[in-house]
Nucleic acid binder design. Structure first.
Length: 281
DNA sequence: ATCCAGGATAGCG
DNA sequence: CGCTATCATGGA
């Protein structure tokens, strides 16, 4: 760090937040973690309730990690039940962060039917091949390439980054964004339903991935991505004695039952179940 | 070797 | 509407 600085970060767990399946490009460096935030190389380390960061980046980092979210207020809106209580205890300090729009969209576009470690590997490969190498003090990271850069890449390059059938979706989506046909920044001002509809126009983006981008980049904390893990929790716990549950029922239940911060509730359930499922079986 | 992973989509009845 | 096959790759 050029100019060491301390940020108060109560009710925050950096490692848990970075390992909760919402962001895929941070790596362990020294006692902390390093990554690019947009085009800035950033290093952060946590010691109890404080973060050590570079002074010039302090405000930007506090915003990225959503240290202004009042977790006690958010948690208080949840409907309490034994499953939610367990997930809450397990996920204490996990925050839903504010990611740059394009890299969040592009990364989740490649997340379809992939384990978290694979998503990380694809993200790193794309960053190394097309992004900028950013030199920090004692570490180096890669920024996520712009839609304009990716739009000009040959599909073979994405296949070499091991994207498989996701390669075409990333390329075609990059072309649409680069052309200006859809302006991701402009969507910020629209109602959630309108943003979701626009995102779903992109190839490879359906309701689940759109909800991930709404939750992790557009700050729509009521958006609930329903993936295989959340589907499992809902079916095994909240629809325990129903033989068949339709996707439509799951969506209706999750937004109504968990309230206006359903996205946070969902993230706690996701994290807890994903990290302990094999042990519980 | 078989199954599964933070899904989307075209094609079918 | 809802259901299914298919898509490409690597870890469990």
């Amino acid at each position: 760090m050029i100019s060491p600085h301390i940020i108060a970060a109560p009710e925050f767990d950096l490692e848990k937040t970075l390992h909760s399946g919402q962001v895929f490009h941070w790596s362990a460096v020294g006692k902390g973690f390093a990554a690019a935030i947009s085009e800035m190389p950033v290093y952060v380390e946590q010691e109890g309730p404080i973060l050590r960061v570079d002074k010039a980046q302090a405000a930007m980092i506090a915003r990225y990690f959503a240290l202004d979210h009042r977790l006690p207020v958010i948690i208080d809106t949840f409907r309490k039940d034994p499953t939610m209580d367990q997930a809450l205890r397990f996920s204490k300090g996990l925050r839903i962060i504010r990611q740059p729009l394009w890299e969040c969209l592009a990364t989740f576009l490649t997340s379809a039917v992939k384990q978290v470690q694979h998503i990380r590997a694809m993200s790193l490969a794309i960053r190394k091949r097309f992004g900028r190498k950013l030199m920090g003090t004692g570490f180096e990271v890669y920024s996520y390439p712009s839609p304009e850069v990716l739009a000009k890449a040959p599909i073979e390059a994405f296949l070499e980054c091991r994207l498989g059938f996701r390669a075409r979706n990333l390329l075609e989506t990059a072309k649409i964004i680069a052309s200006g046909e859809i302006d991701l920044e402009h969507l910020q001002g629209l109602p959630t339903e309108a943003v979701r509809a626009e995102l779903c126009r992109l190839p490879g983006v359906g309701e689940k991935i759109a909800n991930c981008v709404l939750l992790f980049a557009y700050e729509r904390l009521d958006a609930v991505p329903i993936d295989v893990w959340i589907g499992r929790v809902l079916k095994e716990i909240y629809f325990a004695n129903c033989s068949t549950v339709s996707m439509r029922e799951l969506k209706a239940f999750s937004t109504e039952y968990f309230g206006c911060y359903a996205g946070y509730a969902q993230q706690y359930l996701f994290h807890h179940w994903r990290m302990t499922y094999r042990r519980r079986r």
